[in-house]
Design a binder for these strands. Structure first.
Lengths: 195, 195
DNA sequence: TCATTGATTAGATAGCTATCTAATCAATGA
DNA sequence: TCATTGATTAGATAGCTATCTAATCAATGA
């Protein structure tokens, strides 16, 4: 799940340096030996070797030994695959998601939320739980909320603030006293744990 | 000319860190405020602020203030444009080229070389000069070359090694003594300067 | 066998960077 | 007016990294 994140980071790290990026450009043009690269880039052969190691690690170079030279060329595939992922918004989302919540929660949240707004209140107990904990997380953090204030916050996410406010109490995420609402221990834990 | 290299490096640097890459993923999903990002990513708000600065610098985020929050969202355009450049081999070549040789030389070399091989020997004096200096650069570096050896090296690049070998002498890039060839001062300068 | 030559590795170093805590800022609501 | 809250900045620090020189390796040709 996290592999793809690490792999992408390795790739972007490889490209995140002017010398290496120029190397990539040079190798895209034609294969070149290390000595040539060093002289074109005005760095020492040792430095070229160092950069090649990082490019290799990212899977960007193909090499062929022809004594006394080693010729390096760009392997476009890795670059193109990765780069295509970044154009696809869905794929980009997965990068973050993969290393965050477990599959189940992500799916539920995706189904019931439309960006900032809740589409509908789930009926199933488990799904309801996931959604309500997310709602909790999205509230501005206050030591306590007045009923009117809390309702306003909820309304920004879903019109039926009455039901949701009531569910917060019934689910023991919040407790109410004198018309004031406060997070319970369980509520605070859900916020912290969820993410 | 170099702007595009620097811009790309800035972009890849922005993406070359697991925390930031996850931020990009999260912001691709929907806009989020700083506090949320901090809690999802398990880092301090200060760290989020730091990363946002780098993402902003790369042109990756759009923000909208809604007291007391600032909401950040991914601006896909920059990412997609840049990333598309990397899929296009020609564009990638330009990255390196732009920050190397002047326009004229690049054009001549592109026209007369097909990767590792010389297509034809230019007739125009200026173009000939550019091409011969490139040939010189591509020879294995030796203190001196025997005629046969030199011919073999040249032949790997173009079949008419006789003409080219002769031109090396006539252009004063090399001098010949006892059937042995050596680079002149001018020859060495051309190699060093050219790149 | 030894000198040459391209590539890599080891070791050093200056400069960068991800992260934190603490301080400050800016807006809000009590 | 003051406490709260989210965001940013200042300053510190541990760890990373681009680069170099020097040493070593590996193949070749004299």
């Amino acid at each position: 799940m996290n592999e793809s994140l690490d792999q992408l980071v390795t790739l972007f790290k490889a490209l995140a340096d002017p010398t290496r990026l120029r190397m990539v450009g040079l190798l895209a043009e034609r294969e070149r030996c290390g000595r040539d690269l060093a002289s074109v880039l005005h760095v020492s052969p040792a430095t070229v070797s160092h950069h090649l190691k990082l490019l290799r690690r990212a899977g960007l170079v193909a090499e062929s030994r022809k004594q006394p030279y080693t010729f390096y060329a760009l392997d476009h595939r890795v670059l193109q695959d990765a780069v295509r992922d970044m154009v696809d918004t869905e794929k980009v989302q997965e990068i973050a998601a993969g290393s965050g919540l477990p599959e189940e929660k992500r799916k539920v949240l995706r189904n019931f939320f439309d960006g900032p707004r809740l589409i509908s209140i789930p009926a199933q107990r488990r799904k309801k739980e996931i959604v309500f904990e997310e709602l909790l997380r999205r509230l501005p953090r206050r030591k306590e909320y007045e009923e009117k204030q809390l309702s306003r916050f909820i309304e920004a996410i879903h019109p039926d603030f009455c039901t949701i406010r009531r569910e917060f109490i019934m689910g023991r995420y919040m407790e109410r006293e004198d018309g004031r609402y406060r997070l319970t221990e369980k509520g605070r834990a859900a916020i912290a744990e969820g993410r």
